[in-house]
C-alpha cells in the first residue's frame, strides 16, 4: 500500500482571551491509498481540528501550527502559501461537512457550485461543467438531475443536500475525501443511504477517505482503520477489527462499553465518569487520567509512549508497561461472540 498522506507530530493551538487552547497535541498518522481511516472521539478531542488542518481551513490567527508537518505528495501542507493551497483544496483533497445547509452557498444554484471546481481545476467550459454536473448528480442518486441542477439548496431535502455536497467534493476526482461527521444531521434511514453511497463511490473511484465521527456503529460499518482521539492526542490506533475486538486502551474500552447493545439486555450502561479535560490547561501526563479507573501515579506525571501491539496497532497507555499491573478488559467492552475474539 502507498502512503498518500503523512501527518507527523502535528500540534495546533488557538489563542483565546486569556489562554492558549491546545486543541491538537502531537498527532501522527498515515493515510494509505483507497483505505478509509476513521478518527473517533468526543467533542473537543481534536478530531475536527485535525481534519481542518489538513485542508488548511483553520483561521490563523487565532489558530496556529505549533509543531509538526502534514506531508501530501512529498510537500508539507502546513507551509504552503494560500494561493497554492487553492490548487489542492477541491482538486486533490475534497471535504464534506456535517451540516449541508450551512456549508452550501444559499445564493448559488447547485449546478453553479459543482461547476466552480470543474472550471477552476479542470479547465472546463461553462457548458461542459454543466453537463458534468448533471452526470455527477446522477451518480450520487439525485432524481431528475437536469431539473435539480438549476435549483437552490433550500429546494433540496437534508439527504439530497448531503448528496449534492458529495457530488461537489468528488467533482475533480480528489485523492482524499475528508468527511467530517457527514451523517450526524441526518435521520437513520437517510444516513444508511449516504453511507451506502460513499462506500459505492469509493469502490468506483478509489478515493481514500478520512471519516470523522463519534458513532462507533458508523466506524464499524465504514472504516478499515481507526484512530481513537482523546484530549488532543491519538491514544490508540489499529485496524477496525483490532480496535473493536482487541482494544487495549481504557478509553477505547469505555467508549465500547457506553454504547447500548441491540442484541443483549443490560441493566445499566457502562459509564465513563467525569468529563473531558480542559485543553487550555491539559493534564501533564495522560489526558484520560482524571476519568480512568486504572490510573496510576505514573499516568499523572508523563504521557505514555506508544506500545506496538501488532504491526498495525499502537496504544499509548502505562498499563502496557512491563512494570504495570495486569488488567483485564472489562466485560462491557467486549464486542461480539467469543468466536470473533478467539
Amino acid at each position: 500500500m502507498n502512503k498518500i498522506l503523512e501527518v507527523k507530530d502535528l500540534s495546533v493551538s488557538f489563542d483565546t482571551y486569556g489562554a492558549e487552547v491546545k486543541a491538537v497535541r502531537g498527532v501522527s498518522f498515515d493515510l494509505e491509498e483507497k483505505e478509509t481511516l476513521a478518527i473517533v472521539g468526543e467533542s473537543g478531542s481534536g478530531k475536527s481540528v485535525t481534519a481542518q488542518s489538513i485542508m488548511r481551513l483553520i483561521q490563523m490567527p487565532p489558530g496556529k501550527f505549533v509543531n509538526g508537518s502534514i506531508l501530501f505528495n512529498g510537500e508539507d501542507l502546513t507551509e504552503k502559501p494560500e494561493k497554492q493551497m487553492e490548487n489542492i483544496r477541491g482538486k486533490e483533497i475534497g471535504m464534506i461537512f456535517q451540516d449541508p445547509m450551512t456549508s452550501l452557498n444559499p445564493t448559488m444554484t447547485i449546478g453553479k457550485q459543482i461547476a466552480e471546481g470543474l472550471i477552476k481545476h479542470r479547465n472546463m467550459s461553462k457548458k461542459e461543467a454543466h453537463l458534468k454536473g448533471i452526470e455527477l448528480l446522477k451518480l450520487v442518486g439525485i432524481p431528475t438531475p437536469e431539473v435539480r441542477i438549476n435549483q437552490y439548496p433550500h429546494e433540496y431535502s437534508g439527504g439530497m443536500r448531503q448528496r449534492a455536497m458529495i457530488a461537489i467534493a468528488l467533482a475533480c476526482n480528489p485523492k482524499i475525501l475528508i468527511a467530517d461527521e457527514p451523517t450526524t444531521a441526518l435521520d437513520v434511514t437517510i444516513q444508511a443511504q449516504i453511507l451506502d453511497l460513499m462506500r459505492g463511490l469509493q469502490e468506483e473511484t478509489g478515493t481514500a477517505i478520512i471519516l470523522i465521527t463519534h458513532d462507533l456503529g458508523i466506524v464499524a460499518n465504514m472504516a478499515s482503520r481507526v484512530a481513537v482521539m482523546y484530549g488532543g492526542k491519538i491514544v490508540e490506533t489499529g485496524t477496525v477489527d483490532e480496535i473493536f475486538y482487541h482494544p487495549k486502551h481504557p478509553y477505547t474500552w469505555g467508549l465500547l462499553g457506553s454504547m447500548p447493545k441491540l442484541d443483549i439486555e443490560e441493566e445499566e450502561l457502562q459509564v465513563i465518569p467525569g468529563s473531558p479535560p480542559d485543553l487550555a490547561d491539559p493534564p501533564k501526563g495522560c489526558p484520560f487520567v482524571t476519568r480512568c479507573p486504572y490510573a496510576m501515579s505514573a499516568c499523572t506525571k508523563q504521557m505514555p509512549a506508544y506500545t506496538n501491539i501488532s504491526d498495525t496497532q499502537k496504544t499509548a497507555c502505562w498499563l502496557l508497561d512491563d512494570r504495570a499491573p495486569e488488567v483485564q478488559i472489562p466485560e462491557s467492552a467486549i464486542v461480539g461472540g467469543s468466536e470473533i475474539n478467539a
Binding site: 437513520v188 434511514t189 458508523i218 460499518n221 473493536f244 475486538y245 461480539g336
Partner: peptide, 15 residues
C-alpha cells in the same frame, strides 16, 4: 424493519 436495519451496529464483522 427498515429503521432497525438502518442502525449501524458497533461490530465490524456483523456490519
Amino acid at each position: 424493519r427498515a429503521l432497525i436495519s438502518a442502525i449501524p451496529v458497533p461490530n465490524p464483522q456483523l456490519e
